[in-house]
Design a protein around this nucleic acid. Structure first.
Lengths: 205, 205
DNA sequence: CCTACCGATCGGTAGG
DNA sequence: CCTACCGATCGGTAGG
């Protein structure tokens, strides 16, 4: 999404600028907090001109959610993650995710807004959009030779993505709360995800 | 917070009704989506009357966040979790959390709003409020005899709370996306948290 | 705690 | 794509 060649016509270029401006306004102010005027101003046009490109506020938010959701950039590359062992494979997947989050910080905010202010209205559409990438990732994950088969494949994918989400959300909290000390990083999360926190039977004595 | 005896004066009763109405409006509509008028109506008074109890919208949101954040009800009881082994202890802790989430569903929405629309303005205050309960829980957790000491105590608490968060957030997504099949429950999350998903060396043959 | 009101801003439209 | 405008609603206040 970010590194596409500049669109041909001027109208298409304006539309792309508008979408990026809307994304930036929504993630920092929420759906109702971002006004059509503030979006227009951020895109360098006037409020009325937006309606040449989108039917209304709801329409432009929907376009933003579909274009900028956390998986649009991360999941396709996630499905390309490499690594023989489970540890290598998931480490690679995490690195790809980190890159995606670095490229657009606050990308989780979009999902929060969708959940709260839009009451999950666009979730079905969103799920359809990234289902193929999830499937591809699931198949790759299952190929790891040292994967424990005590859980269903989708449960493993859900918990893995959950772990990534949880890391970034708690990170937002800790920095927001101005916590004095560092409390773990993403490798600690992965380590626990791979090995658990229970002492192994044979080590217990 | 929910089962306190009815306040003495009528003014205090109105104030409590108002706070509950504001909570309900905020979590379903977001900060900017909920209007002072809608809050007043939900509380059975007129918009102007709110200002006899709170200085303004920001003030009433702050009061809601402090009164209804996810830990206000869950963390104190969490610190009372019982169980000899790690598994028993965390299972008990999870049950207490589930109860808290059942009592007020959508309680996570408040934190989302705080992160997005308020840009985490109240997080330091919030952190101060529940730090003691986190400390108490941390100490209890460390007493478990079969806890692996490869991670720092606070990292373990962060990842444990993260796991709970992640479970409820992904649950919101899956139901919102109208996913056809069940994909794991909280016991699957706990199981992975305790044991990891890597096959153990001695089982690998 | 209500009625009545304030200026400001909202999403959206008409006409060019 | 802009100017000018619409009715509606916003947060907040005055006065009682």
């Amino acid at each position: 999404m970010t590194s596409e060649p500049s669109p041909a016509t001027k109208g298409e270029r304006t539309r792309a600028t508008l979408l990026a401006a809307a994304y930036q306004q929504f993630v920092t102010k929420g759906y109702h907090g971002a006004s059509m005027r503030s979006i227009a101003e951020a895109a360098g046009i006037t409020a009325g001109a937006i309606y040449n490109h989108y039917a209304g506020k709801e329409d432009i938010f929907r376009a933003v959610v579909l274009a900028y959701h956390p998986f649009s950039s991360a999941l396709p590359t996630l499905a390309n993650a490499e690594g023989e062992t489970l540890s290598d494979f998931l480490s690679d997947a995490i690195q790809r995710f980190e890159q995606a989050f670095e490229d657009s910080p606050g990308i989780l905010n979009l999902l929060f807004i969708e959940l709260v202010e839009c009451e999950g209205r666009h979730l079905p559409e969103l799920a359809t959009a990234f289902a193929p990438a999830v499937m591809a990732f699931t198949e790759k994950l299952q190929a790891a030779p040292d994967l424990s088969r005590t859980q269903q494949p989708f449960v493993i994918v859900r918990t893995f993505l959950s772990m990534l989400f949880a890391y970034y959300i708690t990170e937002q909290f800790l920095t927001g709360a101005r916590f004095p000390t560092e409390i773990g990083d993403v490798s600690d999360f992965l380590d626990i995800y791979l090995h658990g926190i229970l002492v192994r039977a044979e080590e217990q004595k």
